[in-house]
Design a protein around this nucleic acid. Sequence first.
DNA 1: AGGAAAGCGTACCAACTTGGTCCGAATTTG
DNA 2: CAAATTCGGACCAAGTTGGTACGCTTTCCT
Lengths: 148, 148
Amino acid sequence: MIILSRLADYGVIVATHLAGIPDRQVNAAAVAAATRLPPATVAKVLKRLAHGGIVTGARGATGGYRLARAPEEISIAEVVAAIDGEIGVTQCASHVEGCDRTNFCPTRPHWAHINRAVSQALGAVTLAEMVGPDFLRPRPSSQVHASP
Amino acid sequence: MIILSRLADYGVIVATHLAGIPDRQVNAAAVAAATRLPPATVAKVLKRLAHGGIVTGARGATGGYRLARAPEEISIAEVVAAIDGEIGVTQCASHVEGCDRTNFCPTRPHWAHINRAVSQALGAVTLAEMVGPDFLRPRPSSQVHASP
DNA sequence: AGGAAAGCGTACCAACTTGGTCCGAATTTG
DNA sequence: CAAATTCGGACCAAGTTGGTACGCTTTCCT
Ligand code: SF4
Ligand code: SF4
């Protein structure tokens, strides 16, 4: 099964591309050309990212999109949540609504734990980690949060 | 976004229910009655679980389903994979095929790391954890019928 | 041996979510 | 002031999924 949808995948790619040019607002067509993605789809992705607060869109002739925050402040979970909504393994994980079996479902509390682990896995990686080092190699050190 | 599909969710519920009765093979209708799920759907779930090697189905008049292995040997990732296929955050995470952008996609290696974390999160919990110790049971008012 | 019960497989259908495309409103340049 | 450019939301088609139904094979009981 595929965890996140294709739109969310594209969203991370676009956000990563935006993270490489923090001070430069570019339009959707330029991002599409740089990422080799369908222009219409990337426009939709930028749109949802703007709605989610990940990027800010400037209208007008010289308008374009720009990262709303620093790349190291935006996590993959944020980007995914901006496109596909809140992350949750099941309906009951995020919203109690949506499933009428919450009362007698024995597996519900256990899924909350799994949901937390998954959210942490997606929230631990930021856009700075995506654009900074080309090769994936998180430092052998266990802790990554404490930075000098 | 919802990580796993509803069928996979039901599959875990069914597998957990099966884990509570290791030596007793029951038919699909009994499982559906016990879990309060649609009989046809639970039959489909059991079917897929049997195809994935999670449970074994015995034909005949007194047939039924039974766990193929010990509850502590079956992880949630196994159950989910049996129903919805291999777990992967993206197409490139599991199978290289399916996305023609693997050559110039900068985020692909990073996804592998995230995919591993997610798989571990789902693979760390077993069915024994689901059915065995009810460590988190805040005294529900409507207790299920306990066997005398 | 015959009948009934239950799994197994396939097939089919409906529905929703997703992917993609389009046109209109707002803003800046000149 | 007008034209060009761009974001914004609305619209539509398609794929996938969820769910159901039927028929066949296998096994036990009578
Ligand atoms: S309450 Fe149970 S059936 Fe409903 S979404 Fe949660 S785990 Fe799934
Ligand atoms: S190669 Fe890139 S676009 Fe393709 S599935 Fe992997 S991350 Fe997504």
